[in-house]
Design a binder for these strands. Sequence first.
RNA 1: UCGGUAAAAUGGGCAAUCGCGGAUGCGAUUUAUCGUAGACGAGGAAAGUCCGGGCAUCUCACGGCAGGGUAACUGCUAACGGCAGCCGAGGGUAACCUUAGGGAAAGUGCAACAGAGAUAUACCGCCGAACUUAUUCGGUAAGGGUGGAAAGGCGAGGUAAGAGCUCACCGGCAUAGUGGAGACAUUAUGGCCAUGUAAACCCUACCCGAUGCAACACCGACUGGGGUGCGCCGUGCAGCGAAUUUUAUUCGCAACCCCGAAGGGUGGCUAGAGCCAUUUGGCAACAAAUGGCGUAGAUAGAUGAUUGCCUUAAACGACAGAACCCGGCUUACAGUUUUACCGAUAAG
RNA 2: CUGGGUGUGGCGCAGUUGGUAGCGCGCUUGACUGGGGGUCAAGAGGCCGGAAGUUCAAGUCUUCUCACUCAGA
Length: 117
Amino acid sequence: MSDFVTLKSNSDFRRLYNRGKAVTDPALVVYYSKNRAGICRIGITTSKKIGNAVERNRSRRVIREAFRKVCPQLNPCYDIVLVARSKTKYLKSTYIEEVLKKIFENEGMLKSESDGE
RNA sequence: UCGGUAAAAUGGGCAAUCGCGGAUGCGAUUUAUCGUAGACGAGGAAAGUCCGGGCAUCUCACGGCAGGGUAACUGCUAACGGCAGCCGAGGGUAACCUUAGGGAAAGUGCAACAGAGAUAUACCGCCGAACUUAUUCGGUAAGGGUGGAAAGGCGAGGUAAGAGCUCACCGGCAUAGUGGAGACAUUAUGGCCAUGUAAACCCUACCCGAUGCAACACCGACUGGGGUGCGCCGUGCAGCGAAUUUUAUUCGCAACCCCGAAGGGUGGCUAGAGCCAUUUGGCAACAAAUGGCGUAGAUAGAUGAUUGCCUUAAACGACAGAACCCGGCUUACAGUUUUACCGAUAAG
RNA sequence: CUGGGUGUGGCGCAGUUGGUAGCGCGCUUGACUGGGGGUCAAGAGGCCGGAAGUUCAAGUCUUCUCACUCAGA
C-alpha cells in the first residue's frame, strides 16, 4: 500500500540539501538523491515563511496527496525532499501532481522509462 | 429602498470512491507482534498566553520576611483581575452611557517654562507710620497679570485697608442620630478647614510558597564528577551507621538535586467544577431537582482529493488548526439573520 | 511549549529619577582647490511600531495590540 516512508531526522534533510540535486518550480522545490534502501523516502518542508499553521498544514497535505498519486510510477530508489513555496497554499493538488510528473520525467526518475515502454 | 456603524446569533447538511490517525472486536501465534473489520476523528475563537483553578513534583511541617498582585460595596463561583446587582463620580434635556473608584493633616520626592511667589511668598496695587513729593518700615491676599494649580466660592457686615474676623447660602471635614445587608444617603451640631501627583516612592486592607505534562511515574540504555533540609530567616522534627567522654562537628551509606554522558519506549491522555431542556428559588449572575445527550487524543505530528444530492441569493470562499484539562478576559472574522442608531432617496 | 529582549531621521544607535529629541555615517547648499578627495560653514529630514488611559504635561508611567529577535528543551 504505502510505497514510501517519511524522512524524520534532521541529518537526512541536511544531507539532501547539501548533496542532493535540486529542481525548482514556481509551485515547489524538489531535492533528491539515490539511495540503496529499495524504497522511496520522502520529507516535506513547510517553513514559517509560508504563513500561519493552517496555511502550512494545507500546503503539506496538498503536496502529500499529489505525491501519493505520482508515487506508483516512480522508481523506488530515491530520497526526496519537497519544499513548499509561498505560492503553494493557493494551488490545487491536481496542478502539483502535473508539476511533479513533469519534473520526475525530465530527471528520468519514472519507472516507465526504465522498463522501456 | 439603498449604504454604513455597533452588539448578539450562526460559522451548511447528507452520501459515495481513494487516502490518513485510530479506541475496540475477531483470527493467528514468537505474549508481544502480524492480519482483518473498524465506531469516531479541530474551533467560536482551538489564537494571544493576560488572569484564575485542577493535577504533579520540590529529602517534612508551621510562622515570618522579601517579592508580586488587587483596590467602593454586596453577592455568584472551585477560584479569579471574571460575572451580576447596587453606591459614588463624570457626561447627557431624557431614556441611558462611561468609570484601575482606598489613603495626599504618617512621611519623603517632584511640579519644567512663565510668574513677585509653587508650599511658602508682597512685584504692581490698597492702607498706616517715619517723613525731604523720592525713599524706608509695617499691615493686607479685595483687585492686576502668570500658570494646569495662587490659599474654600459668593454676598452682606466689619475695618485704616483687609482678612472665616463675623453671619446667611453652597462645597468640604469631624461627631451624633435615623434608614439600608453594605458602600452610602439624609438630618442636627461643631469648628472655619493647606494645590496637584500614589498608572512617583510609600502607607492601609485583602490575596499569593515555587516550578510546570518537555511536570511527573515506570521500563530500557548509560554510568564519571560536584552538591543538598523549598529565594532568605526562625521554630519543631530531622533515615541508618561510625569517630571524638557529652554538647556539637566530621566521615561513609541511603535519598534527592545539578553538570557531563544518554537522549528510546509505556503510562500521564481525556467523563469533565460537562452540555441541553423543563420546573422551583433569586432583580440578576447563579444554584437545586427531574429527564435526556455524549468516545479527537496525534507525537516530525492524523481531516486531503474527486463527485453527487438537498437547504440556500450563494455555499470555492472570512478569521483560523487541539498538543494535559477546565473557568474567564482580549484580539481576528466572509456571508446570512436579528436588534439599536446614523446618512441618502421617495412618499405622507 | 515556556521565558526574556528590541521597535526613535535613509542606516546604526543615545535619550537614568515624566518638562516640546539628540549623536555618528549618509543627503542638500556654499566656501577653500585648476578638478576630485578632504576640511570648514549652513541646512533639510522625526508626531518616537499602533490604539486607549493616568497626568497640567508621556519617547519615558499603565493596559491592550502588531512586528522582529534571543534563550531553554
